[in-house]
Every structure is written in structure tokens, then in C-alpha cells.
């Protein structure tokens, strides 16, 4: 069974009186444990597609099934719970909570979303912070970190609940070349260790290079898909 199944998914927005079609009949099947990249020009529908897979938005038509659950019929509360349990997010602007330390940002989903008891939390948080190389920065606040460090913390926050899917929208857009490479490499490594499916919307050719499956979107439609075997793991 596919991890994510999209059947004839259409998404339209109303901008004033005008209806704009962001996605026009997407049919897609995404497998578990893959490094998947959606590429395409700005406004092609990459972010809209990620929002639909992340249960942040609902399709206008069609069905989206994630791990056997039709997410299009979920109410707000059910969708929030589903996201908390199954989906992690990495944002272009990192989106860390500024009043929480590195440790607390990573701990947040365990406390507020998962309600994990305190005695079990520390080990989980420290393990994931160590895996992204931020354990020694645990007491710092986001404004004391560099862009790369912030994105590592964001990756740790997404990973800490051990989601099936991590959605990353332009995760390297605000990072310099060297840092972006490190973050991509880190995510690839984490995918291997945790068997998490990473789904990117990106322009970054380095991510595209690392991806196992690359979908090209134009004008809300998938115009190309290809499998790659030249990821860093294979290159090594």
C-alpha cells in the first residue's frame, strides 16, 4: 500500500471574484521511506501540493489517502491530531518559537501535542538533538543561532515525534551554500536512520540531486517524474 495516494486532486482558490486553479487533477502514489522532491517554477503548485499532503488544506475535488486514511474529510481537530501523530514540517523560515530554547522547541510537540510524560521526554529530545548536532546548543534561544543551526533545530523538532512523513518547503532557501549542503546531507542521513519519508518542494538543485524520486510540476499538473539512484548514499 502507498504511503500517500492522491486521486484526481484539484485545488482552486478564489482571488476576489476570479477562481484560480492551483492544482489540476493530480494522480500520485508516494512510497514509504523515500527522499522525494517536487520541483517547478514559482506558482506551479508545489506548496499547495505539500499543504494538501500535510492536511493543512483540503482539496476542492479528488481524494487524498495517507496511510489508508482519507484526509479530505477530516475536521480541524482530527486533522490537527493526524498531523501531530504522522507528519513533521520543516519551513523555509525555520519557524522556531522564539520564546523557547532549542531544547524546548524540540520538546514542544512531545509536551503539547503528544503529552509524553516528562521522564520519557528528555531522552527522546537529547537523542534527536544529538543526531542533528545541536545537543551542545540546547539552552540557546533561536535568536542566538545561525540560519543553519535554526534549520537543524527545525529538523529535530520535526523528527522528535518520529513521524512517517516530513514535509519540507524550500528548506534550504535561506541558507548559504555550505550550510544548505550540510542540512541536506543531515536529512538524507536521518531518512536512512529513521526510515522517514521526506517530501520537498524546492528549487534547490542539491536537493534534487539527492532525491530518489523527482516530480516536476507546471501549472498545477505533474509533467514529469523520474527515479534517481545517484543519491549521496549511493555515491558514497
Amino acid at each position: 500500500m502507498s504511503l500517500v495516494q492522491m486521486e484526481n486532486v484539484i485545488k482552486t482558490y478564489k482571488v476576489g471574484d476570479v477562481e484560480v486553479q492551483a492544482l489540476g487533477g493530480i494522480n500520485l502514489s508516494l512510497e514509504e521511506g523515500k527522499f522525494i522532491s517536487f520541483i517547478g517554477p514559482s506558482g506551479s503548485g508545489k506548496t499547495t501540493l505539500l499543504n494538501l499532503v500535510g492536511c493543512l488544506d483540503k482539496p476542492t475535488q479528488g481524494t487524498i489517502t495517507i496511510m489508508g486514511t482519507d484526509t479530505g474529510t477530516m475536521d480541524r481537530k482530527t486533522a490537527a491530531r493526524f498531523r501531530g501523530e504522522n507528519i513533521g514540517f520543516i519551513f523555509q523560515n525555520f519557524n522556531l518559537i522564539p520564546v523557547l530554547t532549542v531544547y524546548e522547541n524540540v520538546e514542544y510537540p512531545l509536551v503539547i501535542v503528544r503529552r509524553v510524560p516528562k521522564e520519557n521526554r528528555e531522552q527522546q529530545v537529547m537523542q534527536v538533538l544529538e543526531s542533528v548536532g545541536m545537543a551542545d546548543q540546547r539552552n540557546k534561544y533561536p535568536n542566538q543561532l545561525s540560519g543553519g543551526q535554526k534549520q537543524r533545530v527545525a529538523v529535530a523538532r520535526a523528527l522528535v515525534v518520529e513521524p512517517k512523513i516530513i514535509l519540507a518547503d524550500e528548506p534550504t532557501a535561506n541558507l548559504d551554500h555550505a550550510t544548505a549542503y550540510k542540512v541536506i546531507h543531515l536529512m538524507h542521513e536521518l531518512k536512512r536512520v529513521f526510515n522517514t519519508t521526506f517530501i520537498f518542494a524546492t528549487h534547490d538543485p542539491r536537493i534534487v540531486e539527492e532525491a530518489e524520486i523527482v516530480y516536476t510540476i507546471e501549472d498545477g499538473c505533474i509533467v514529469d517524474s523520474r527515479k534517481q539512484s545517484n543519491s549521496s548514499k549511493e555515491r558514497k
Binding site: 481537530k77 501531530g84 514540517f89 519557524n95 522564539p98 514542544y108 501535542v113
Partner: peptide, 16 residues
């Protein structure tokens, strides 16, 4: 608003 979007995205329930 952006922060509310973030915490909602990562699974914080509306009631929370």
C-alpha cells in the same frame, strides 16, 4: 499569526 500557523501545523489542537 505566523507562529500560530506553525504550532497548528505541527499538531497543536485548536482547544490547546
Amino acid at each position: 499569526v505566523g507562529e500560530i500557523g506553525t504550532i497548528a501545523a505541527i499538531g497543536t489542537l485548536p482547544s490547546k
